[in-house]
């Protein structure tokens, strides 16, 4: 079986989360490997979350804001 990475993305409610919504409205297609966690601002993302994600098996973490 081919490698299927798991990516965790922290998205700011006001910009990148909204952008991901719009990508849906526009029916833009992308791989299903990303899991979005909504935050109220990318500044809210504690370094611990990134460490946690990586140690629990995430192949990549994105912080978008």
């Amino acid at each position: 079986m081919s490698f299927e990475p798991k990516i965790v993305a922290f998205c700011c409610n006001w910009c990148s989360y909204a952008a991901a919504d719009l990508a849906g409205t526009a029916r833009m297609q992308y791989p299903h490997n990303v899991r979005i966690v909504r935050v109220m601002c990318s500044g809210m993302v504690h370094p611990e979350f990134i460490m946690d994600a990586l140690s629990q098996g995430a192949d990549g973490v994105m912080v978008l804001g």
Partner: peptide
């Protein structure tokens, strides 16, 4: 939540987006 992202001691959190809630979400994602 800039305060939450900065605090090294979990001394401040944002209601509705607590460390516990987001951690649980990350854990569930993986």
């Amino acid at each position: 939540g800039l305060c939450q992202g900065t605090c090294p001691k979990r001394g401040v959190f944002v209601a509705g987006f607590t460390m516990q809630q987001i951690s649980a979400q990350v854990q569930a994602a993986l």
